[in-house]
Structure formats: C-alpha cells, structure tokens
Amino acid sequence: MSNEILKIEKLERVFRVGSEDVHALRGVSFTVQSGEFVSIMGTSGSGKSTLLNILGCLDTPSSGEYIIDGVSVKSLSKNELSELRNRKIGFVFQNYNLLARTTALENVELPLIYNKDVPAKERRDRAVAALRLVGLEERMDHTPNQLSGGQQQRVAIARALVNDPVIILADEATGNLDTKTSYEIMSLFQDLHGQGKTIAFVTHEPDIANFTTRKICLRDGQIIEDKPIVPLSAIKALEEISKMPTE
C-alpha cells in the first residue's frame, strides 16, 4: 500500500517585499508515501511555514510542481483548492483554533458542514467517532474553555481526522503544551500513525521530531537533511518523566 500521497518537485516560493524579492523556498523536492510520519524541522525563517502553507493548499508555489493524492495543485481555482482542503487535508494548529463557545462535537463537525456529500446524521456520527478516537467521547458537549490545552488539541486532532484526509498537517502542534502533554499528544499521533494515517509534522523542537519516522530539515529554503529515523516511543518517554521526581 506504499503509494505517493505527496509529491513536490523543485518548489519555489518568492515573496515580494517592497522592491526586493525574498526567496522563501528555493527548489524543494520530496515525496511522502502513504503511512509515513514525517517531521519537517527548521528554525524560524527556514521556510517551513511557507512549505506548510503550500502543502496545505492555502498558498500556491511560484514555480515547481505539487501533486497531492494524484491531483496537481498548480492549475486549480480558489474553490477547487477549498474543496481539496476540505476532502484531503486535516489541519492541526499550534493554538488549536477551536471556535469559542462551541461544543467539542460542533467543532469537530465543522469540516463536514462544508462537504455537501455528508448528510447531517452521518456528520454527527463521524464526529462522535473521531472524538472517540482521541479519547474525548465523554467531553463532546464541553466548550473549549472547559477543556485543558491538551484536551483542546485532541479536539483539534479529531477535527482534522473527521473528513478522513489523505494527510494530516500539524503546525507546531505541541508548541503551546508542556512536556508531558506534548508527549501525550505525540503518543496519540503515533497511535494514528500505527493505524495507517499519513502525518506531516512541522516543528522546531528536535526531541519532538524524534517521535517520527522521517526527518526533513530545512534551512534558508532548502532541504539540508532528509533521512528515515527509528522513532522513539512516546509512551516510554511519558513513563520516564513520570518517574522523575516532581519539584
């Protein structure tokens, strides 16, 4: 079942700032196979956010080719891009981006509202199933302010899963969480990976990247490293910090 989910080739992205051209990406190429758990590393300014925006079909490359699940993004209209995001991509953000004063269930249902093919009944069932998958079935009527940071991020992950995307794009998904909660979230991602989900995880924390199966490092808009790694187990990491004495 090893087929190409993502394929980017000689991706360039040039921003025009004042009278100067800024090259955020300078010829980036890689492919992601189905079932991979990729981390994209880089310091700020390395172009990883730009890359993520392009991978997420929020932005289009200045030149180069991007094919997601067999669809070339280059020639698509705005509405077609929206539909692509809706059907094929699941986003997880650093600051969760849940709708305030809206229950977890409604938050998870949100992507399906924009999918005409999903009737209301099925929408609810799928949202409940996604919440069950992240272990928050009991809290589906809670609003974000009644949930902890980790729980909010789980709701966001459920929202990313609900449309059954070909890839989950996580943007610094653990950036706002403490170490323990970060490891819990990474363990959830590893579970999902174990179930065959394809995940691209953007981070600048090397220890988080160690939980993935492949590391891509960016610097100044170019790939400086791309290698498969043996992932650490997040559950074990959790056990270790629980052994440590609390101050």
Partner: peptide, 10 residues
Amino acid sequence: GLRMAIGARN
C-alpha cells in the same frame, strides 16, 4: 481563517 483552512469557500 480556520473555516477557510478546513474547506469553506469564499
């Protein structure tokens, strides 16, 4: 922004 990211059209 979020709604657009998860597939809302303009």
